[in-house]
Every structure is written in structure tokens, then in C-alpha cells.
Design a protein around this nucleic acid. Sequence first.
DNA 1: ACGTAAACGCAATGATCTTTGCTTTAGGGA
DNA 2: TCCCTAAAGCAAAGATCATTGCGTTTACGT
Lengths: 183, 183
Amino acid sequence: MSATSSPARRTGGRSAAVLAAVRSAVEELVQERGTAQVTIPMVAERAGVNPTSIYRRWGDAASMINDLATYRISPDRALPDTGDLRADLAAWAQEIIEHFRQPAAAALLRGGAAAAGAGDSDCLRNRRAEATLLVERAGGGVPVDDVIDHVIAPIVYRVLFRPWSLEEDDLAAALVDRLFAGR
Amino acid sequence: MSATSSPARRTGGRSAAVLAAVRSAVEELVQERGTAQVTIPMVAERAGVNPTSIYRRWGDAASMINDLATYRISPDRALPDTGDLRADLAAWAQEIIEHFRQPAAAALLRGGAAAAGAGDSDCLRNRRAEATLLVERAGGGVPVDDVIDHVIAPIVYRVLFRPWSLEEDDLAAALVDRLFAGR
DNA sequence: ACGTAAACGCAATGATCTTTGCTTTAGGGA
DNA sequence: TCCCTAAAGCAAAGATCATTGCGTTTACGT
């Protein structure tokens, strides 16, 4: 007997196909109807999968959406590095704006906001870590909390409540301007 | 026949009592379970009201929660009026911060954020109207969008994702300072 | 290849949630 | 005060979601 026998999970083949189908279905439905209006039977039908399979794997819709949402984020991408903090922040903000112009990303942020109260799901923790990195690399000068308050927060507010206003093409620059005004 | 007969809505008595009971029940349940886990039969039982009454009035849970979230800050309250725009904005921001320190208010905002995607439900539209009033009364000088981006948005962000950071007692002043910096 | 069991599909069941027709209560104008 | 009807209550039917037992498929270790 091997005492170190792992539970022998299945990662490929049909299981992987189901996962992929479910992921696509969730992303589509979350865009079309919003996080709160997505049910498991709905996802199952769109994915061509039996509802029971989803119930057994995730338990409920919130867990499923949260699990699939975290997969979308790419924490390993390279950050802007021009040598100028102000330019770096502007480019970084622009990346984030473009990300949230995708309807699926915006919808998932809404779900994250709703879930943030109960539980420890903070889907923006990575953005804060990135801000810290940018500021510290430049030797400080701007508190990280100010970057959050005056660059990230306005973007998040617009994504949540005024999505059409994300299209203003000098938004990132304007936000960074105000952050640096009078310093 | 009087062509100018108004629809004759009922605003007082039993209707008002039902509204009050439902509001209390929603606020309690939203704190206890989170916006997404609140159902209409649940609210009806807690409020001592028939579920049908709620269905007929609001249609579904999301609309109900959003509606109650919108009107929780009385839209008719007096706004600060010191004669100085900067002081008025700081006092106004302070009111809003104190409002969202109540857990029920924070929970309702999360629900509003989740529902904001589909439809034009913006549970913060009253704040925008108030900002417009304050700015116009002072003869302009600060774009309303800037007030939203740099005063309201940071507050909302903190309510949603970093509720503990609402306790900093000079937050309102700091936000307004940055709004006016370099003008 | 082969065997084991993980994961899926199916179907029946139970638990909510939602809708609908009707009756009763009571707010507000005449 | 009286009348009209908006709004609430009640109860039954319908729809949808969630759970569970059982048989089938098939991924993975040997």
C-alpha cells in the first residue's frame, strides 16, 4: 500500500471539455444577464452539460462564478517601466480601463463587488499590489492610497455605475493629472 | 369627466406601513445574508407581509433592493450651505461617509453595484444630482464629473472593497483637498 | 491493455420561488 | 360621510431550482 496515494483527480479529457464549455457559457451569460441572474440550469443548457455535473463540482452559482472569474486575471504580465512614475501610472491606468471595457470583465467586477462584503474575495487586490510596486520602484513620492483613491476608484466607479463613460479617451491621463496636481 | 384627474396613488396608512416594514426587513436580511441571498418570500415573512404584495409592487428582489437602496438617504434633506464651495463639499462628503459606515447602507450599495449593469439603475444618481446643485450654486469652477471621480468614487470604492478604511476621520477633507489642488 | 473509481448523464423527488384570479381592506377625493 | 378603487391578503396552480440514487462512461495508474 502506498500511504502517499493522492486522491487521483481527473484533469483532462471529458472533465476538461466540460470545464471549458461551462467557462464559455458563464462568460456569455454573465455579460448578457449580469452575475446575479445567472443560474446553474441556465449555464448547463448553454454549455450542453448536465446540471448535476455543475452542482456536484461547484455546489452553487456564486462559487462557480467566483472560481471562473479568478482564472481570467493574468497577474504575471509586465508592468509599464518608462523610468517616469507619472507616465507609468498613466499607461497602467490605461491598461486597466481597456480591460474593463470588455463587458465580461465589467460584469465580473460587479459580481466581485457584491460578494466583497461576505467572505474574503477582493478581486482588486492585485491592482493594489501593482500600484505599490510602481510607486516603490520610483522611490515613493505618492502614497499608494492616493493612487487607489484617485486613479483606481474613479475607474471602478465608472465601470460599475457609468460604463459608457469609460470611452473618454483621455481619462487615464486626466486622472493621473489630478493625482499629481499641486505636488 | 375631469381630464386632469391624477392616478390617485396611495401614499399613507397601510401602504406606508408595508413599505416601512419591508424596508426594515430588507435592511436586516441584507446585512445578515448579503444581497444575493435575500429572497422575496424571506423578506415578506420577516416583515409580516404577504409575498404577493411585494411581487406586485416591485416585481423581483433586485428591483426591490435597488429601489430601497436609492431612497435611503432622504433626498429632501438640506444640503450644506456655508457660502464656500470647498467647505460645502467637505461637509457633504462627510455626511455620505457617515451614512455608509452603517453596515446596512454598505450592504445595499453592494447590491446596487451588482444590479447596475442591466438597466439604468444607478443607486447613486441622487448623489450626482446633489453635487450638481452644490457646484452650480457656487457658480461652477469645478466640473461635476471631477467631484464624482475624486470625492464620491473613492468613498464608494472604500465602502465596497475596504470598509475598514472609512474610519479615517480626515478622509472627506483629504479628498476635497486633492480635488482643489492646483486650481 | 486492464481495472478501478472519478466524473458524467439521467430521472425522480422535494423544496423554493413566482404567477394569477379572486376577495377583503382602507386611503383619499367629492 | 359616502363612494370608488388602489393596494393588500389569500390560496391554488405553475415554473424553476436543488438534491439524491443509480447506472454509464472514461481518465489515469499499473
